[in-house]
Design a protein around this nucleic acid. Structure first.
Lengths: 323, 323
DNA sequence: GTGAAAGCGCTAACAC
DNA sequence: GTGTTAGCGCTTTCAC
């Protein structure tokens, strides 16, 4: 593998001149310039990013840490993050925590060992130290008690929109899958708000606590089956996209009429919610904007700039066929 | 940020000794060892991966290049690749080509500039040079004329299984979405084989050519709507998961009985196919094995070992409710 | 056992 | 304009 030295020797110049030529920094005569470009061609020289990183003390890589990138919401948001990072000249390292504590830790370690310049993190338990020491880390859709800035959807708004729609549709008893109220999931905000607004209006609310890592498809379907005796007593259901798809399919199998017998609202609003019949009514999280804000924030932190401690992204109600 | 020198000074030893201690290489007396560990603690020293990379001439990062990681098949396979890479001590850089030629090129450039040690690539048009010069690059589910090894599902087997099932179900006229026959997509193999086997058995086959980048959800649904006058004349349909979901929902909307009026077979078999009612019959690609083989192959190439030029992973027919 | 020194491939400051 | 040199933060000989 040719190095800058090989090029310099071949062109009969010093390595500084080669560097200057290739980076367009400082003056280089047209003649030497040509000689150098020729030598680059002949040697097949490609500058080593590693050596450059050594000097910049940066890798140009941001880690994106999610529970599971196969989940449609995370798949979507990670894609948009990769895209935003790309636009800014950064690369995106994919980290699935898979709820394994060692994985979480090892990805945070990459920040300290400077494999990545920063991390966008969606995990429940950030180590306490994470925020300190000038680490560039932003928490996406999760609370954090470590002084880490947070970017998330406006779940208060989401919970309210859901509740209002159920009320408008005349629902009397609503069920929701929640991930338990003792965790740092910001998602719980929507459940709290929905419950509050609904109960104020005299609508009964049943909350079924799912495992806090309920991200897999099969788990969701199992939960719907397991709690079907409860679900069939309600006339409104709110859960994530996957839960909603599960719910819809089981309801159809059981001969229920959706939305007549049961209104379903899917939270997240990824594209799969448009591929059912009837199409799912959703609260849609604005993934492009979430991604943009996360990237903007983490890159500002990398540059040592001040960043807001909380950014709220509005959600959108899209009424379709299940309400 | 503390460097190895700071630790050495603080512990009153040479940097070589610090290095030896931290890497358990060479002899270090218990006494100095303790002093050094203390100094590490006090300074908060974390070894720089960048400097280590400089010496190893490796980053420990493999790029995974797919058209769009939001697509359920690629989301799944990339997750499994990340997992396999992690097990081998490697990291996974996410690259969405989004069918943009510049993006493709820039990701390949990362190989040359040594940002990544290798690339697992699922793109249609690899630059011709890609295979040469000892580049560690494996093509996943795509043909390549550049001497790049290929890992893919056994689509001959897939096409045959589909055809046989349609025949068994008594279908007389089958429709398929294909991505056009002039491309290097290995997916076309299954379409060719299916057509051949079906026509041999006297079953008529209609092929609808979709855009070669037909990976988005909305595009698929539009295609189903657009060609519905054709689709409603057939009694068998084969397409990818997303296409099949689209097809099922439109069929239900149109009042068709699936599978009585129309058999649907989804190719890919990601988890969303279990969330419909009826559940989709699928040809399932073995993502964990594909991921494992891709990782194994690319890491062997990184190590300069010989690798097979083609690896075929069996697919599996799972009969569910749409046939 | 341990320190000093060379070197990985590059950039940037500084002479000439 | 251009060459030389000093690092960037490590690992790895090689003396002592």
């Amino acid at each position: 593998m040719a190095s800058i030295r090989d090029v310099a020797v071949r062109a009969g110049v010093g390595i500084g001149t080669v560097s200057r030529t290739l980076n367009n920094s400082g003056y280089v005569s047209e003649e030497t310039r040509k000689k150098i470009l020729e030598a680059v061609e002949e040697t097949g020289y490609k500058p080593s990013a590693i050596a450059k990183n050594m000097i910049r003390k940066r890798t140009g890589i941001i880690g994106v840490m999610v529970p599971n990138q196969e989940h449609p919401f995370f798949a979507k948001v990670m894609k948009h993050m990769e895209n935003e990072l790309y636009k800014q000249g950064y690369k995106c390292l994919a980290c699935n925590t898979l709820d394994i504590i060692n994985r979480q830790k090892s990805f945070i370690d990459m920040l300290d060992s400077r494999v990545v310049d920063g991390i966008i993190s969606c995990v429940d338990e950030l180590p306490d130290f994470s925020g300190g020491n000038g680490r560039a880390i932003v928490s996406f859709d999760r609370n954090s008690d470590a002084g880490v800035p947070i970017v998330r959807s406006d779940h208060e708004m989401g919970g309210r929109l859901v509740a209002e729609l159920f009320i408008k549709k005349g629902c009397k008893k609503v069920c929701q899958f929640t991930s338990g109220f003792d965790r740092k999931r910001t998602a719980n905000i929507r459940h709290d708000v929905m419950k509050e607004v609904l109960e104020e209006a005299g609508v009964e609310v049943v909350s079924i606590i799912t495992a806090w890592d309920a991200l897999s498809y099969s788990y969701n379907k199992d939960m719907v089956r397991k709690y079907w005796d409860i679900i069939e007593t309600v006339d409104g259901m709110m859960t994530t996209d996957i839960g909603a798809l599960s719910c819809l399919s089981v309801a159809q199998k059981m001969g229920l009429n959706v939305p007549k017998d049961l209104c379903i609202i899917a939270y997240d609003g990824t594209d799969i919610t448009e591929l059912t019949y009837p199409e799912l009514t959703v609260i849609q999280q604005d993934c492009p904007t979430i991604a943009k804000k996360c990237v903007e924030t983490v890159l500002n932190m990398v540059d040592g700039k001040e960043v807001p401690s909380l950014e709220l992204i509005p959600v959108k109600l899209i009424e379709r066929g299940t309400t």
